[in-house]
Amino acid sequence: MPELYLGVATFLLLNIMVGLIRILRGPTPPDRMLTAQLFGTTGVAILLLLASALSLPALTDVALVLALLGAVATVAFVLRAWHKPDLDGEEE
């Protein structure tokens, strides 16, 4: 069983590698950011699989933290980083 989980984890890692192409090619910044968001989720899945494959229960906590904070970068990107050039952004 752990062998299979490790195999799926490797498969998901390859998924991330393939996903990098979208970050490189993605025409607009939002494309890139949502790919990073997808990586967060795939990372959580890999960590969960590793947790049971390597019987390291602590990795579940790591997955929990990553799940909690996966969206912070995207929120920061949307709210702070990516402006439409002429839109000066109305004061909140």
């Binding site: 890692l13 970050i23 490189l24 790919t35 990372g43 960590l47 390291l56 990107f77």
Partner: peptide
């Protein structure tokens, strides 16, 4: 692109910590 790739880099580094038995 650089910053978002950096975020992906950070995630992969976190995975390598998990692999190196450093929870």
């Amino acid at each position: 692109r650089a910053v978002i790739l950096f975020i992906a880099f950070g995630l992969l580094v976190a995975l390598s910590w998990a692999r190196l038995d450093a929870p």
